[in-house]
Amino acid sequence: MIRPVARFVIGLMNTATLPSYSPKAAMGPVEPAARRYMILSVDRILSPVAASLAPEGLLRLVALQRDRAAFGTLFGLFAPKVRAYAIRMGASNASAEELVQEVMLSVWRRADTYDPDKANAATWIYVIARNRLLDEFRRLPPLTVQLVMADKEAGDDPAHELRLDSQRAAERLRMALGKLPAEQSEVLRIAYYEGLSQRDMALRLGLPLGTVKSRTRLALDRLRDVLKAEP
């Protein structure tokens, strides 16, 4: 356990020496004695900085300052989700492990392309994981979906009110997901966690296709309203 902790501290100190971001202010001046203290009890030092930031802020730290402490916190938050997602999608334990490494490495490398106006951090990482997973399973060249945004012809996206205010919307979404009727929640989970088509889902659940379609529609309409609503 010693070595990762030491790395965290290095990351944190790098952060503290850069002028532009606030962790330094949040932590107060770093005296030599305090540095030794940091190494001894990194958990308590880390918590007010990294842990108090939302994942969006952590991604920003990674992008702007190559902050390993922030990255370590992101890893703790999302690596288990990536693994669980890979396994629900049918990956073996070994390839799920590999996928976690690849996805989190992409997070590190591509953090500077993250746009908080477009998606919250969880959504951004989810999309990376999904694309990686698909390419992995099929052993095909990458789909390069991410290129879409850089190459659009249709002009600007519709006005900002259609956009997700990422963090608040994520919270509203979380509540709304919790409140969905069980049968609507079930179809969404199968769709997203296993990538099944509605036809395959109908077979699996022994339901008419129309029922699956209408449950999906009801659930998505409700969530869409949540995402659309002004805060």
């Binding site: 989700k81 997602y85 989810y126 997700l164 994520a170 979404l173 997203y192």
Partner: peptide, 8 residues
């Protein structure tokens, strides 16, 4: 995708 992020 935001819905996917929430479920993720």
């Amino acid at each position: 995708e935001a819905v996917g992020g929430g479920l993720f």
